[in-house]
């Protein structure tokens, strides 16, 4: 028996909104420690990895490890029907060929129940090597979203260059060019609005804005986002998910392969 109940059901809604257009089908791996998912987009350029700790749920029971393969667009479509204040419960028997989703509006005496058929997917797991990144940038997630959105009006790729004097995001296109320079913020009065830049070694790397704009759909999950970069390796864009007490309950990490000179 598997049962996971989340009072802040909007977290599940937001996670699905953040991944459904990047990967169409994926498997959730459920164990006593929590639920996780790893999937690449069809072009094998980006990968999304989601983790939700068992502690992050208000009730969590997993009697034996389960793999729940499903169409994420369908799941997102159904979960979209849940209200932002609804409690969401996911249930599956051990030999599941479907899962049950239960939505309970907090203030009312009604229960909405949906069943979703499961799929047998050939999951292809990629081992992601431990990397000591040369550059780690933490910035407000809405600022990252705006940078990606605005620069994609000009060009298809963004070049991220990080050096001691700050980080620059730049693009060029037929219209002209654009760039944004970010410096580390001085005060820690508003941690959500802070920009912190750690540089071991200066880097300059280019990435497709199309994918970064997909990643930015996770903005509602966290006020801050981190970008980890090293020369000639995939970029990691991470949104850490917190509960009401500000404890970490999971994350969405996106990996994006760089564009290199031919």
């Amino acid at each position: 028996m598997f049962e996971a109940r989340m009072v802040r059901g909007f977290i599940i809604k937001r996670i699905l909104e953040a991944i459904k257009d990047l990967v169409s089908e994926a498997s959730w791996d459920c164990s006593t420690s929590g639920m996780s998912l790893q999937a690449m987009d069809t072009s094998h350029v980006s990968l999304v990895s989601v983790s939700l700790k068992a502690d992050g749920f208000d009730k969590y029971r997993c009697d034996r490890n389960l793999t729940l393969g499903m169409n994420l667009a369908s799941l997102a479509q159904i979960v979209k029907a849940a209200g932002n204040d609804d409690v969401i419960t996911i249930k599956a028997p051990d030999d599941a060929d479907k899962i049950t989703l239960i939505f309970e509006p907090k203030s009312e005496t009604e229960t909405w129940e949906y069943e979703i058929k499961l799929m047998n997917l050939d999951s292809e797991y990629l081992g992601i090597p431990e990397t000591d990144y040369s550059v780690k940038i933490n910035l407000p997630s809405h600022k990252f979203q705006r940078i990606c959105r605005d620069l994609s009006q000009i060009g298809d790729s963004v070049t991220i260059s990080a050096a001691k004097d700050g980080v620059r995001f730049s693009t060029t296109g037929d219209l002209g060019s654009g760039n944004v320079k970010l410096n580390q913020t001085a005060s820690a009065d508003k941690p959500d609005e802070a920009v912190t830049i750690k540089i071991e070694e200066p880097i300059i790397l280019s990435f497709a804005l199309k994918y970064l704009n997909h990643f930015a759909r996770a903005t509602a999950l966290s006020p801050q986002v981190s970008l980890s970069l090293s020369k000639d390796v995939p970029l990691v864009v991470e949104y850490v998910i917190h509960d009401d007490d500000d404890d970490e309950i999971g994350y969405i990490r996106y990996y994006l392969a760089p564009k290199i000179e031919e």
């Binding site: 072009s43 292809e124 797991y125 081992g127 992601i128 090597p129 790729s157 392969a257 564009k259 290199i260």
Partner: peptide
């Protein structure tokens, strides 16, 4: 022009 790399080059199948 720049060429888009694929993740398979960096991450190993396990």
């Amino acid at each position: 022009d720049k060429k888009q790399m694929k993740l398979d080059k960096f991450f190993k199948k396990s």
